[in-house]
Write a protein that binds this DNA or RNA. Structure first.
Length: 918
RNA sequence: GGGCGAUUAGCUCAGUUGGCUAGAGCGCUGCCUUCACACGGCAGAGGUCACUGGUUCAAGUCCAGUAUCGCCCACCA
């Protein structure tokens, strides 16, 4: 061996080198010209503002498992990496930085300079999270790293916007939208988070203009009253029939507003009268449209009261609320104030309370786009794992309202529309007809024109009017929705697009099924006529030990970089994959380590396993040096060899089907069990004497061992790539050729990342050997228990007697019991009783006697414990068999098994009882 | 208000289409510093599968309801 391996696995000493070697070899690079079936994953692009958290670690570990597995299977594999420009989040962050540095806000800085500053910031920090992903060993094709604002993605955005506008799926109109006063932009419905809030419910009196009393209206937002233009009652509400058509005088504003009849007013709620503020409430807006009411906007974009707010102009919304209530109370117009909890919408980025705000915005009319997306899930072309998430997707798509895509921001894809205030259709015709890259349409109010173009317009193209570019940018999710194909060069017909689209699997968390997944499906189907992917794997959300979301403000987050530093990247990946069951949440109990960092003991399972793998490999390498390889007849091998080879085949098959079903926990847990329990605890221990002795048998064992280790490294590689890669090099050095010639052979390239995935070999399956060895293991365990209970010294050997004429398989497998249980000799003796110094146990109705044990009291206790257990079982079996329904209706083989078992149990009980008596 | 999920050992979780005595890791107890590994080995203790009913020969598993916790969606004044 050129270099000794350390006694304890030290991830920091090997992980970096392993990854860099894979990287340097170009192992992650995808070549569209390679003629193999493609397997593609696009990364959920992390925000440029982001840094790696546990959710990313989990998400990307699972993607890497799938990618590395498919790559080993021989697929032409592409894992497309990249980052998202994250409009609001990024702009807000840089704005804040500039405000701190220069004291200037974005309007003082100006659009051009701010955007330039954000690009600078992006150049500096934009790739940080991708660098962090490399610490996870992510095997992305880094040469293709994309950014949602780069030229390639911009081209796709422009094209799809153009197509949608031309086809009438995009429109502009004055609508009530969700307004974020903090960042001063519109938001889409699903960018609004509803939070339970303690609020006050104000019941206000509006005096009738006639002077004959008042009506009572209720609101949680009294400042909106400044914009009230009516009071509504239900048309059938008998209490108010005579008021319909009268007017009230709006307090504080002294505006006379009508009392109208509208079905929106609910007689069962409050007084049955409802104030109507069309410019401030979605329902009131509808009422306003029906009754042609004035729509008075009383707020500035930053939520201060504007010139329509009379005396309250200039006050912030909350200050205005306070003052309005004071003033109304002074006039005796507050009937009462209740404390209530209600749900208030907040911006998912700025966390500011949303105001409904009447403004001109761009929308995607989603109904016709949603229909094919719904269809695809319903007919099974698009599959969710776990299946239940299909409902989230469908519910959302089926209740979709038009998507507001314009944002009053500067960081993003600028809307490719030019406005004209007026102009004649003929002039537009003259300027653009025959230009397939430009299309135009009347504005909604019929007075101007909207021109959409694939190329930037100068503004003077049309006679008599000036074209001005729309200042808004698109919702970030608009470009994210194109990610599976914008990154491959669409709308150009690139080799990448042809080879890798549609992609295969999307791996993400459930919170963006609506924001992202559904929109990719809609746009993929619209733009390319094909689904962007066929399978969506939704993994769990990681919570802390108390079931709370990990967050910076709570200080309960575990930083993956800390875990990598202390446990290693592979240990973290192992643990994360191991935790991936189909549950919706994962709890990760958090503790502080000595350096004050948050950590979690959960990662020990991964670290411990890596150490086991390392040391078992070390043991193998020590013995494998100079081992020979030659053709073997698997059927002629010793029983333990046939057993472990057969177990290996089963594990290969299980791993394969588990990965195909996206069930990560069973996949890695099965492999763990194979390696640790079957290979290390039993096989390795069983063959030690053979190996020590050397010779033909020892050589054969080593050849089997090398094969098992080789296949294990391959199978584990997708989960824990770096340690397996490192061990692979050593294995290549020590035993360049592995496998069983003629029976199980695979190429062993220089790097494991390029090695072929193991195949299950039917000819190496051996049920007889499995049964035989499992029986020996059971006997060994029972003897060990006796030894432990009777405090037999570790080096003392003891004889074992079997109360039977013979035991099938004993000749070839008996050595396992002798060596593993410290048994000096095994004899079969039919009939006769056990000697008084013997401890007995039963397996499958056969009595075993461990001779030379002296502690009578200990033995008595052992036997009584066993007897109690057996009597319980006997009772259960008898109960079952005396039930006519069971005997008649249960499958015959189960009934027979019960009978057989009962017979065994009875024999064993008789044996034990006799023993206790004697 | 609608939808979804969880409740199994002290802790974190497995448990395939209902079928022998419900498993794992950590923690705990005893033994073992045996020439791969103490981040280890061997043996062991520990559970009326949240509760109540129902279906069935048979329920942790299927159905209905209850309780507790959590998530998502929703324009209630």
């Amino acid at each position: 061996m050129s270099q000794e391996l350390s006694k304890t696995y030290d991830p920091n000493a090997v992980e970096k080198a392993a990854y860099e070697r894979e990287l340097a070899a170009g192992a992650f690079h995808a070549d569209p010209s390679v003629e193999a079936p493609a397997y593609t994953i696009v990364i959920p692009p992390p925000n440029v503002t982001g840094s790696l958290h546990m959710g990313h670690a989990l998400d990307n570990t699972l993607q890497d498992v799938l990618i590395r597995w498919r790559r080993m299977e021989g697929r032409n594999t592409l894992w497309m990496p990249g980052v998202d420009h994250a409009g609001i989040a990024t702009q807000t962050r840089v704005e804040k930085k500039l405000l701190e540095e220069t004291g200037k806000n974005r309007y003082e800085i100006g659009r051009e300079k701010l955007v330039a500053a954000i690009w600078e910031w992006k150049a500096e920090y934009g790739d940080r999270i991708l660098e962090q992903l490399k610490g996870l060993a992510a095997s992305c094709d880094w040469d293709r790293t994309r950014f949602t604002l780069d030229d390639m993605c911009a081209r796709a955005v422009r094209q799809i916007f153009f197509d949608l506008f031309r086809d009438g799926h995009i429109y502009r109109g004055k609508r009530l939208v969700n307004w974020d006063p903090a960042t001063q932009t519109a938001l889409a419905d699903d960018e609004v988070e509803h939070k339970e809030t303690q609020s006050k419910f104000y019941h206000l009196r509006y005096p009738l203009t006639s002077g004959e009393g008042h009506v009572v209206v209720a609101t949680t937002r009294p400042e909106t009253m400044l914009g009230d233009t009516a009071v509504a009652v239900h048309p059938d509400d008998e209490r108010y029939q005579k008021l319909i058509g009268q007017t009230v005088t709006l307090p504080l504003m002294n505006r006379e507003i009508p009392i109208i009849a509208d079905h929106w007013a609910d007689p069962t709620k409050g007084s049955g009268c409802v104030k109507i503020t069309p410019a401030r409430d979605p329902n009131d807006y509808e009422v306003g449209l029906r009754h042609d009411l004035p729509m008075i906007n009383v707020m500035h974009p930053d939520a201060r009261i504007n010139e329509n707010g009379g005396a309250y102009e200039g006050l912030d919304r909350y200050a205005a609320r306070k003052k309005i209530i004071q003033d109304l109370e002074a006039q005796g117009l507050v009937e009462r104030i209740e404390e209530i909890t209600n749900e208030i919408g907040h911006s998912y980025r700025s966390n500011a309370a949303i105001e409904p705000y009447l403004s001109d915005q761009w929308f995607v009319a989603v109904k016709s786009l949603a229909a094919p997306a719904i269809e695809a899930a319903k007919d099974g072309r698009l599959k969710f794992h776990p299946e239940r998430y299909q409902r989230t997707y469908l519910d959302w798509l089926e209740n979709l309202r038009d998507w507001c895509i314009s944002r009053q921001l500067w960081w993003g894809h600028r809307i490719p529309i030019w406005h004209a205030d007026g102009g004649d259709e003929a002039d537009f015709e003259k300027a653009f007809s025959g230009d397939p890259q430009t299309t135009w349409r009347r504005t909604e109010n019929g007075q101007g024109w909207l021109v959409c173009s694939m190329k930037d317009l100068a503004g003077d193209e049309v006679k008599g009017v000036t074209l001005e570019r729309d200042p808004d940018v698109l919702d970030t999710w608009f470009s994210s929705a194109l990610w599976p194909f914008s990154t491959l060069g669409w709308p150009e017909s690139t080799p990448e697009l042809k080879r890798y689209y549609p992609t295969n699997t999307l791996v993400t968390a459930r919170d963006i099924i609506t924001l992202w997944v559904s929109r990719m499906v809609m746009f993929g189907l619209y733009g390319l006529g094909e689904l962007p992917f066929t399978d969506v794997f939704i993994h769990a959300t990681i919570l802390d030990g108390e079931g709370q979301r990990m967050s910076k403000s709570l200080g309960n987050g575990v930083d993956p970089l800390d875990i990598i530093a202390t446990y290693g990247s592979d240990a973290m990946r192992f643990t994360l994959a191991h935790m991936t069951t189909d549950t919706q949440d994962i709890r990760l109990p958090v503790e502080r380590d000595a350096e004050g960092r948050n950590t979690s003991k959960r990662f020990e399972i991964g670290r411990n396993f890596c150490n086991k793998l390392w040391n078992a490999s070390r043991f193998a390498f020590m013995n494998l040096e100079g081992a020979t390889r030659k053709p073997l007849d698997p059927k002629a091998l010793p029983v333990e060899d046939r057993w472990i080879l057969s177990r290996l085949q089963k594990r290969i098959a299980e791993t394969q089907s588990a990965l195909e079903a996206f069930t990560f926990h069973p996949a890695i847990d099965g492999l763990r069990e194979f390696f640790w329990n079957e290979l290390c605890d039993w096989y390795l221990e069983i063959i030690k004497p053979r190996v020590k002795e050397g010779g033909e048998s020892g050589q054969a064992a080593l050849q089997v061992l090398a094969t098992c280790l080789d296949r294990s490294l391959r199978l584990f590689h997708p989960f824990i790539p770096l340690i397996t890669e490192t061990l692979w090099w050593k294995l290549n050095e020590v035993v360049p050729e592995r496998g069983l010639p003629g029976h199980d052979e695979l190429d062993s390239p220089e790097l494991l990342v390029n090695a072929p995935w193991p195949k299950m070999r039917e000819t190496l399956r051996d049920e007889t050997a499995e049964k035989s060895v499992e029986q020996m293991i059971a006997i060994t365990r029972a003897v060990r228990e006796v030894r432990s209970e009777h405090k037999v010294g570790p080096k003392d050997t003891i004889p074992l007697e079997i109360a039977a004429a013979s035991l099938p398989g004993l000749d070839e497998a008996g050595h396992i019991v002798r060596e593993m249980a410290g048994v000096s000799e095994i004899t079969c003796t039919q009939g006769g009783g056990a000697s008084s110094d013997a401890a007995t146990f039963h397996l499958e109705g056969v009595e075993y006697r461990v001779k030379g044990v002296v502690d009578q009291e200990a033995e008595k206790q052992r036997l009584e414990k066993q007897l109690e257990k057996l009597r319980g079982e006997k009772k259960a079996l008898e109960g079952r068999l005396s039930n006519a329904g069971y005997v008649d209706r249960a499958p015959a083989h189960l009934v027979q098994e019960s009978r057989d078992r009962l017979a065994q149990v009875e024999t064993e009980i008789d044996g034990l009882a006799a023993r206790l008596k004697g």
